[in-house]
Design a protein around this nucleic acid. Structure first.
Length: 616
RNA sequence: GCCGACGUAGCUCAAUCGGCAGAGCAACGCUCUUGUAAAGCGUAGGUUAUGGGUUCAAUUCCCAUCGUCGGCUCCA
């Protein structure tokens, strides 16, 4: 539930390309790999092996763990099989024939049972009726499969296939079932495409926020403090603070009011809210304070509600918007932690809007507008939105269906009027109400749910919230939970990767570095630095004994937007020689002219470093 | 939590079969006073993640713990 959870959307595979050549190649490569593995481990059991985005995998139950050396052997054997150019032969079999064929393969038997009963297909997806059971055979290997495949193994380019890694995976994705070994591979039409893909993987590694965070001194995670509890170093904390200030200022201009609440609260608070005990598993053990139990807060909403309840409200007060950068703590299993994207303590840019029911749509429009403004300011333009509605069939939601329908309609109307493209996805709602999520696709083509706007009629009821209407009667407000950055930690991780560490000037921890050529230029460099600092810029002087070239290299590595070289000529002219991190040389400029240009770039939150120069 | 890999100086990495723990960068000192991506020389820096075990001898082999990475599961 949520008060906006940081939910991550995994890379989505586009299912509509089943018939494509790449799909066939990858599916066929999976079969060939399974053959090669079974040749090495004749007693091995095979599970499933589908194509996926960028490649394929196959799951095995083997007598021992696979090593990287095994992968090399398997890959070599795959290439031989490919070169033999065995045809793929399709045939249909009855369930009994299939069971006979795979009598030593318990996972296949389970799949066959599923196919026969019309329950689930070989990928575990629901199918409505019994399907034809088919196999594909090449060389001596016959696998249960609906296809399609390439005509023969030789249609695959042996130099465009590569096995990548081994990983554990539960059979049927169920943690109560056996852990299998999954081999991931990638396959393309040409060796060039494979090389491109491998290069993309390398690039992703270079952009990784964990690597850049270290190199740029943004944050550190200390095992002594604890896993999943990041520490912000001065430069990272500065970026974080700038993002907080930007959003808070923007929000206040739009009628939000800042509030601030503590990190713990009585367990009774969460019992009233309904969060406890249903979400016990992701909460930490309660703290005993003089015999009374307190929880580290896993969400901010109950605290905010108590602020609302602390006084009487008139309909004239609504919408009432309270906002806080609130740090919450949630238990994540050790193996799930990852850099800043999955942590145990994180800060939400949380806001709760208390509105009259008839204000819902308009308030939603306002939130959508705010989100789009912030995204645009940060250069995040590749996103889509999703209206999450309740699952019609399951009993996973609470409340009056008519109220749900009203809320969904309000959200859709707001999306329509705002002109944001959206999809409606059943079953994606919070259990207490529908929501609108903003899903951002990053430079590495991964999808992340960033912003979420959720309608809640449940908490107002549980806490018996009221406002006095124009009719002098008490009425129940509707709550909107809203997070824009979501988790500040995750958001900054995404920004670091999006910018590849090169923050726009207004966000750059150091905006300019003065590079004196010789010691005799230090005094002038300090004077210019003082002038820029007085104007509000974040400036450093590199007064090390290094050569100018080394200073430039250091600044480039730190992705500092402006390098201001000062030597005899500049000192005499009252100028700075401006080099941009994008490697453009703007030449010498009077200090005042540089400052005016930089201030303009900063104040406008421009993504570019200078007018007429492209963002980089 | 589960499967697997890994953990050596602040950072990036070496160290043959179990036989004296090393380099580059960074730091510090000295020299050089420099014009758009790394000047030269020197100094210092280590309980090889932590704890235990095997051994004449452990960075190396074994066990446990902590942490990281790739996945799986989970993500209010």
């Amino acid at each position: 539930m949520s008060c906006h959870m940081e939910k991550e959307v995994n890379p989505i595979m586009n299912a509509s390309h089943e018939e494509s050549d790449l799909h066939r190649i990858r599916h066929s490569a999976a079969h060939i790999m399974a053959q090669a593995v079974l040749e090495i481990f004749p007693e091995g059991k095979i599970a499933i092996g589908p194509p996926i985005e960028d490649g394929f995998y196959y799951d095995f139950d083997l007598p021992r763990s696979l090593t990287p050396e095994d992968l090399a052997v398997i890959e070599k054997r795959m290439q031989e099989i490919i070169q033999h150019d065995y045809p793929f032969e399709y045939r249909e079999v009855s369930a009994d024939e299939a069971r006979q064929l795979y009598k030593d393969q318990p996972y296949k038997i389970e799949l066959i049972d599923g196919l026969e009963q019309g329950g689930v297909d070989e990928y575990g997806e629901k199918i409505s009726e019994a399907v034809v059971i088919s196999t594909y055979r090449h060389d001596g290997f016959e696998d249960l499969c609906r296809g399609p495949h390439v005509a023969s193994t030789g249609k695959i380019n042996p130099d465009a296939v590569k096995l990548l890694n081994v990983a554990g995976a539960y059979w049927r994705g169920d943690e109560n079932r056996p852990m299998l070994q999954r081999i991931y591979g990638t396959a393309w039409e040409t060796p060039d495409q494979l090389q491109d893909y491998l290069r993309r993987l390398e690039e992703a590694k270079e952009r990784d926020h964990r690597k850049l965070g270290k190199e740029l001194d943004l944050f550190v995670i200390s095992p002594l403090v604890g896993a999943g509890l990041p520490l912000w170093k001065p430069k990272g904390a500065l970026v974080r603070q700038l993002l907080i200030d930007f959003l808070m200022q923007t929000q206040m201009a739009r009628g939000y009011m800042p509030v601030s609440t503590p990190h713990i609260g009585k367990i009774d608070l969460y019992k009233t809210s309904g969060h406890y005990p249903y979400y016990k598993d992701s909460q930490y053990t309660p703290i005993d304070v003089d015999g009374e139990l307190f929880l580290l807060k896993p969400m901010n909403c109950p605290h905010h509600i108590e602020i609302y309840r602390s006084e009487m409200h008139s309909y004239r007060d609504l919408p009432l918007r309270v906002a806080e950068f609130g740090t919450v703590y949630r238990y994540e299993k050790a193996g799930e932690l990852a850099g800043l994207t999955r942590v145990r303590g994180f800060t939400q840019d949380d806001a709760h809007l208390f509105v009259a029911p008839d204000q819902l749509e308009e308030e939603f429009i306002g939130v959508i507008d705010l989100i789009r403004y912030i995204y645009k300011s940060l250069g995040l333009d590749d996103f889509r939105t999703r209206v999450g509605t309740h699952d019609q069939e399951k009993d996973k939601w609470i409340g009056d269906p008519a109220v749900w329908d009203q809320a969904i309609q309000a959200i859709i109307n707001a999306a329509e009027k705002s002109g944001v493209p959206y999809t409606v996805e059943e079953g994606e709602a919070a259990f207490y109400g529908p929501k609108l999520d903003f899903i951002f696709r990053d430079v590495l083509k991964r999808d992340w749910q960033l912003s979420t706007v959720q309608v809640d009629n449940n908490l107002p009821a549980r806490f018996e919230l009221e406002y006095i209407g124009a009719d002098n009667q008490p009425h129940r407000p509707v709550m909107i939970h809203r997070a824009l950055y979501g988790s500040l930690e995750r958001f900054i991780a995404i920004l670091i990767e999006q910018y590849n560490g090169a923050f726009p000037v207004w966000l750059a921890p150091v905006q300019a570095v003065l590079i004196p050529i010789a010691d005799r230029h230090h005094e002038y460099a300090y004077r210019v630095a003082r002038q820029l600092k007085d104007a509000g810029m974040r400036v450093e002087v590199d007064d090390s004994s290094n050569r100018m070239n080394a200073k430039i290299r250091a600044a480039q590595t730190q992705k500092i937007p402006y390098m201001l070289v000062v030597g005899d000529r500049e000192a005499e002219a009252g100028a700075v020689a401006v080099r941009l991190r994008s490697e453009e040389d703007l030449g010498a400029k009077p200090v005042g002219a540089f400052l005016a240009m930089a201030k303009d770039v900063i104040d406008s939150r421009s993504m570019a470093l200078a007018p007429e120069v492209e963002a980089k």
